[in-house]
């Protein structure tokens, strides 16, 4: 075991604040490059025009330091805390919420969180609470990943508890059906995160974590990489296209994460992500 390293949670707050702002202003390079590449392959003139607008929009947001999209999202934080870290100076989760509060305030980001969802739906006015997923990992570092998750695409996501007999064909059909029904709603071209296995809460987390991969990356397991290729081809054959106006570019990529499941179960989830796929990681 290494020496214990102290990390003041004030550093966490500062890092989260910076992540909120920069994630919302700067489209990741992998997504930007994928949108540019799609302009070359898209057959629909309207689709090419939409893709050109999205590239120009990313350029404007980065140059003017304004949000890529007015829906600056629910702040989802994946925190990996090294087991040789001692967090000092206050409550770790409170420090993350404070970083979100400062980032969404100082960065002129939209506050999009409502409390009492079933009734009052009052805006919490500071975009808190953040959604926090913490895991303990080896080492003496703290790694924070922020995903700014917009509502329109999240609303098109799905969860299915399939029968094991439905197999891969059942899973693939459910993914394609989810994208097909979503149509123009989630701001295509989308990125599709698919979770397979685990339990009801874990499969949705797998689907969300799948979205953290770089667009264009290949899964290290060739079996899963082939499944992803198959789904991307089927989804892009739907004809939905950029903004649902017709075209070949319905999705930029499909990512799958899987884990073992109960012998009686076959959980699967699809987390739909718009083209404004905003996420960024920092290590303390």
């Amino acid at each position: 075991m290494g020496a214990i390293r102290e990390v003041d949670v004030a550093e966490v707050t500062a890092a989260v604040k910076d992540l909120c702002i920069t994630t919302n202003y700067d489209l990741p390079a992998d997504v930007y490059d994928a949108l540019k590449a799609a302009q070359e392959t898209e057959e629909s003139p309207v689709g090419r025009e939409v893709l050109a607008q999205l590239v120009e929009n990313a350029d404007i947001a980065a140059a003017d330091r304004v949000p890529i999209c007015q829906d600056t999202g629910f702040a989802v934080i994946f925190a990996e805390v090294g087991q040789d870290v001692h967090l000092t100076g206050g409550d770790f989760e409170a420090a993350i919420h404070e970083g979100v509060r400062r980032g969404y305030g100082d960065g002129y980001l939209r506050k999009s969180v409502a409390e009492e969802p079933a009734h009052a739906r009052r805006n919490t006015t500071d975009n808190t609470p953040a959604i926090i997923h913490t895991s303990i990992v080896p080492g003496d570092k703290v790694t924070l990943t922020l995903m700014a998750k917009g509502g329109g695409a999240e609303n098109m996501s799905s969860l299915s508890m399939l029968k094991p007999s439905q197999g891969w064909a059942g899973i693939a059909d459910a993914v394609v059906d989810t994208v097909s029904r979503a149509g123009s709603n989630p701001c295509p071209p989308v990125i599709i995160g698919v979770g397979i296995g685990g339990t009801i809460e874990m499969v949705t987390l797998l689907a969300k974590k799948a979205l953290l991969r770089d667009v264009g990356s290949t899964h290290p397991d060739p079996r899963i990489a082939a499944m992803e290729d198959e789904l991307l081809e089927r989804v892009n054959a739907l004809g939905i296209g950029p903004q649902g106006l017709g075209g070949r570019t319905t999705a930029l990529d499909v990512f799958i994460e899987e884990m073992p499941c109960h012998i009686a179960s076959m959980p699967m989830a699809v987390n739909v992500q718009c083209h404004a796929q905003r996420h960024k990681t920092v290590t303390l």
Partner: peptide, 13 residues
């Protein structure tokens, strides 16, 4: 009408 979703910086101009 549809405007381009996710092009909020461009449309603001």
């Amino acid at each position: 009408f549809a405007a381009t979703g996710g092009a909020g910086a461009l449309l603001a101009r």
